[in-house]
Write a protein that binds this DNA or RNA. Structure first.
Lengths: 339, 339
DNA sequence: CTGTTAGCGCGTTCAA
DNA sequence: TTGAACGCGCTAACAG
């Protein structure tokens, strides 16, 4: 029933060579005679032997895998198209280097706990506050990490955009169009963030909004805010509630996903209210009605972060600590002039 | 510079206890005295020690990870929303069991090569023909596998829908609406498939189309076919070409992604031609114009396949070999009566 | 150049 | 509570 595993030892015995010779046959055939290599490989085939990759990696002190720490539960993380595009970018780089990409869900609702057990050569996180619990584990395990959309104000390698500037641009575009009754729907803040956390993406964007408003002698008190939203469903829910007690002329969302939900509500109520999103989803599934948005490339963030992580793994001392990627205003059909 | 790794040995020496005692302190504190456990854990904290997960897994003969073999290159695989939803389903089950999910890109353009090096406890594939190369590796490594949308005619555990029936239904709906000039855009066949392959999803669906056509005294010769497409871009390209040399009244696509591309072309040319898709993407981003489609749940396939894989890993002898999931016709606004 | 011996990596677990 | 063996492959050092 339980066919015992064939090991390097079995091949050695069967062929009369040593384990070393067998290992060489697989890894550096030039190190032994051609005849020996052939004999060994043949025996391996007959006995159905393949070197066990885990034993191999263990011996070599590596994993051949990058890890992506999911910032929230799987349902939320992987359901988010922006996160998916970041993952795609990471995976492309892994593919190029012959690595695997390991998705690591929170363990017992703890990202730190998950990091403790992750069998990977390095980690990438997204929009996550790297608190001291996680830090401690990283240092104990000598695990390099790159943070995407994370706090860029310390000693951790990070990839992000200028969220404050991007948000300021977003708000300014709205104000320039003449809108003054504005409803803003933020993203939820890092679910696992501790009080000792530095500035999050959400906070930076709010600061950008504040600056844009200030230029028009306005403040947060002059705009409508309600609960945060990250999915289309949540966006729709929040927008619907807002419309029940106020009448904004424009919605500002911190994600396209939420913006799409808002659009649905407006459509179903036949309301002609402007909407501007954030992200610029690349899926191209909704070209008919194009969302006006602030574009940033999730895939590019994934690519960059993985490249940086590989440099850290390779021990490159000159790896840049902060990487800023560009963002742009993308004109669509959903942000209209307010007469 | 190179801080040496702290090992269980260091803790043993520092505390005067044995490696065994240290191991127990972490895994079964009850096996040693309370005092010893405390002392050991305290020393571990001081020296910043954490048991190395790879060594641990190696010793325990497991990985705590499921593997997902990407059927094509990353760009194609992870760009596909259907595949993403399958991955989400798998990941949810992994999360529940405290496992990781490892995405495995083809290595040197070979899925078999990738499987050879995968450090996982079991594999899931999607729409892939498990040829004898892969089979051989699986058996050598004693790796259990579950195939989603794969060949369900052998000894491999599989999860799928009745693709022939679903396709027959799809074509019948079109015919019932009165369409007779029909353009069909298939999916590309498994890129890595060998000639010895059993029936693929594409072949099964075509057989379903054939049966539906037959009921109307028609055959494949009566419908328009061109190149296959799996993405929106490809769908648009193929549809555009078809429209250049013929004038169908309805497009049948084997995926919603391709169907969306077709819709874009029709919109840009202001053509009122029917479209029916396949998959039923759940992202809810395009509710305004709802694609008529054959719905199947990618996430459900992911959930089921992972559950089955865990049963195999657990050595459950009664794990069902074939699992069929339901599909339904989902009415939208894009399949119209042909007058 | 070809081949071997011995020890390593790091925790787990059996027998004492 | 512990010493020693184990899991499996890699590789430094050495001998012919």
């Amino acid at each position: 029933m339980k066919a015992k595993r064939i090991t390097i030892q079995d091949i050695a015995e069967k062929t009369g060579y040593s384990k070393t010779a067998v290992s060489f046959a697989f890894n550096s055939p030039s190190r032994i005679s051609k005849k020996a290599a052939e004999k060994i490989l043949k025996a391996a085939k007959e006995l159905d032997y393949i070197p066990d990759p885990m034993a191999r990696n263990f011996s070599l002190g590596r994993h051949m895998a990058l890890g992506f720490l999911l910032p929230q539960r799987v349902e939320a993380s992987l359901g988010n198209p922006y996160i998916q595009s970041v993952i795609s970018g990471i995976a492309e780089v892994c593919q190029k280097r012959g690595y695997m990409l390991t998705l690591i869900p929170p363990l017992h609702s703890s990202v730190a706990e998950a990091a403790k057990n992750a069998t990977v050569d390095g980690l990438i996180t997204l929009g996550l506050i790297i608190d001291k619990d996680i830090r401690s584990i990283l240092s104990r395990r000598h695990l390099p990490i790159v943070s995407v959309d994370g706090s860029a104000d310390d000693d951790i390698h990070s990839v992000s955009i200028d969220d404050m500037g991007a948000a300021e641009l977003q708000m300014r575009k709205v104000l320039e169009k003449g809108h003054r009754k504005i409803a803003m729907i933020p993203l939820p803040d890092d679910a696992y963030a501790k009080p000792d956390a530095p500035a999050t993406v959400v906070q930076k964007r709010k600061e950008g909004y504040r600056k844009a408003l200030e230029a028009y002698s306005m403040s947060f008190d002059d705009i409508i805010t309600d609960a945060p939203a990250s999915t289309a469903e949540e966006g729709a829910t929040v927008a619907a509630r807002i419309l029940d007690y106020s009448n904004p002329t424009c919605f500002i969302a911190m994600s396209d996903a939420a913006a799409m939900g808002i659009l649905d509500v407006l459509e179903s109520r036949s309301l002609d209210i402007s909407v501007i999103g954030f992200d610029g989803l690349e899926d191209g599934l909704c070209k008919r009605k194009r969302l006006t948005t602030i574009y940033q490339s999730g895939k590019e963030k994934g690519l960059k972060s993985a490249e940086i992580l590989f440099r850290l793994i390779d021990g490159d001392e000159n790896t840049p600590l902060y990487t800023l990627l560009p963002y742009t205003f993308r004109e669509g059909t959903t942000l209209k002039e307010f007469r």
